[in-house]
């Protein structure tokens, strides 16, 4: 993947591109992201093997955070302006996972990241 000549993009840059609001997890803003996964099915996310992933999803329940925990995914972006409840945010905070919300729908959010250079893909068997 090339992000304007680099092979990564910082979490803070991703937030900027998606005009996303940070809900928790400021500590990961400088982290490098190598690729993105957009899915509403958590088992599909778990078939996705790659490191330094940002997860975009329209699902806002605690199992999204749990899936991210198992997958070592440190950044979740909730699309379509969906806001998770406080319990989900607290759960993510506890696990050191960053949560953003963006008003953009899934397709547009993925498109914006892709056209900014986040073109790396995971390995699907």
């Amino acid at each position: 993947m090339k992000c304007k000549g680099r092979d990564y993009m910082k979490v803070s840059e991703i937030a900027g591109i998606l005009e996303a609001e940070l809900l928790t997890g400021e500590e990961n803003l400088d982290m490098e992201v190598h690729c993105a996964c957009g899915a509403d099915l958590m088992s599909d996310v778990m078939a996705f093997v790659k490191e330094n992933v940002v997860l975009l999803t329209g699902l806002v329940n605690p199992q999204v955070v749990r899936t991210a925990e198992m997958m070592d995914i440190k950044v979740i972006v909730f699309v379509r302006g969906k806001k998770p409840d406080e319990k989900v945010i607290e759960f993510a905070k506890d696990k050191g996972i960053t949560i953003f919300i963006t008003k953009h729908p899934m397709f547009i959010a993925c498109g914006k990241l892709y056209s900014s250079g986040v073109t790396g893909r995971g390995v699907w068997d």
Partner: peptide, 15 residues
């Protein structure tokens, strides 16, 4: 609706 039940559970375990 919770993001599971897509028929990927056992295949993922095997993977």
């Amino acid at each position: 609706e919770m993001g599971f039940g897509a028929g990927m559970g056992l295949p993922n375990i095997k993977r």
